[in-house]
């Protein structure tokens, strides 16, 4: 999409939110950066989409985005799901910014439940949509109590939960929303990303911002900050592994989605990060199910030249 096609619509302030709201969110973001992993309360606004569809992430993006930014939005790693397309269109319309699906071109990446496979750079900011920001919420429902536990850095409850996992299943069975300790102090919810993505948060060159609209919290991990997944000496943190490479691009050691192919148990595993997979296929990588390269894609002289 080019910028001209995204002519900004009139009747809205730049990036939808009014300036007073942006100032309030910006103040919360600066505090969040200064206190890594601490959830800063903010006066979340009603957005033109339901709670649960990324209202927190959208408000954070709207507060930081400028006319020169290039926005990418992913939902479970994919650029082309309804939520991702809608949010991209929302900002193309209200801010007139350029949008992209390419991770390497984006300056702001808003995400639901994944971190791109390609390593982020210092020029990028990643904005997470967060449903439940409080890691202790399902262990202690009272806000007054969880706030006290954070103040005292008392995270024993969380270790008990992980221990109970081990007692019941023989290993830590938490696979997403896996709690992390940020900069040696606050325990934080990384949003429901698979735990596969937790190591990417550690010492990431990109600024990571988290917005929870319904729960009215903003938090952050500054660049180059220690992010440690909680574990035990005898049960160290481990990420998911996959037995097969991506069926379309053949890559290994990335996060894969399972796709059911038929009603006889046929299934394939493909990259969850659609841009990463497309980029590899464009480079000529082929997977088990990608088939022969279609004739019209072959640049005949070059291929024959290499063959001879």
């Amino acid at each position: 999409m080019n910028a001209a096609a995204n002519a900004q619509s009139t009747g809205y302030n730049f990036a939808y939110l009014d300036e007073q709201t942006k100032r309030m969110i910006r103040r919360a973001i600066l505090k969040a950066i200064a206190i890594p992993g601490y959830q800063v309360p903010f006066a979340s606004r009603e957005m033109p989409m339901p709670y649960g569809w990324g209202t927190g992430g959208v408000q954070v993006t709207a507060a930081i985005i400028g006319p020169d930014d290039v926005l990418k939005v992913i939902d479970q790693g994919s650029d082309d799901t309804t939520n991702a397309v809608s949010i991209r269109k929302f900002f193309a319309k209200t801010a007139g910014v350029e949008t992209t699906t390419e991770t390497k071109r984006a300056t702001i990446i808003q995400t639901r439940h994944r971190i791109p496979e390609r390593e982020l750079t210092a020029k990028q900011t990643i904005v997470f949509q967060v449903p439940i920001p409080e890691p202790l919420r399902f262990l202690e429902p009272r806000e007054t109590e969880t706030r006290k536990l954070h103040a005292l850095a008392d995270y024993g409850l969380m270790h008990v939960k992980l221990y109970e996992d081990i007692a019941r299943h023989g290993h830590i069975a938490t696979t997403y929303d896996y709690p992390v300790e940020v900069a040696g102090r606050y325990v934080m919810n990384p949003s429901p990303t698979p735990k596969f993505d937790n190591p990417k948060m550690d010492m990431s060159p990109a600024l990571q911002l988290f917005g929870a609209g319904r729960e009215k919290r903003i938090y952050a991990v500054p660049p180059f900050t220690k992010v440690r997944s909680l574990d035990f000496e005898d049960h160290p943190f481990k990420v998911q592994t996959f037995d097969t490479p991506c069926a379309l691009c053949g890559v290994e050691n990335v996060y894969l989605d399972e796709v059911v192919l038929d009603d006889r148990g046929g299934r394939m595993f493909v990259c969850s990060d659609s841009d990463f997979c497309e980029e590899r296929r464009a480079e000529g990588h082929r997977g088990e199910l990608s088939g022969e390269e279609p004739a019209f894609l072959k640049t005949a002289p070059a291929v024959e030249g290499e063959a001879t």
């Binding site: 910006r26 600024l207 952050a220 500054p222």
Partner: peptide
Amino acid sequence: DPVIAAQANFHAAMTALSR
């Protein structure tokens, strides 16, 4: 232009505080 100037200034402050 308060909208554009505030965004640019905020971005500078955000970069300074995060790095």
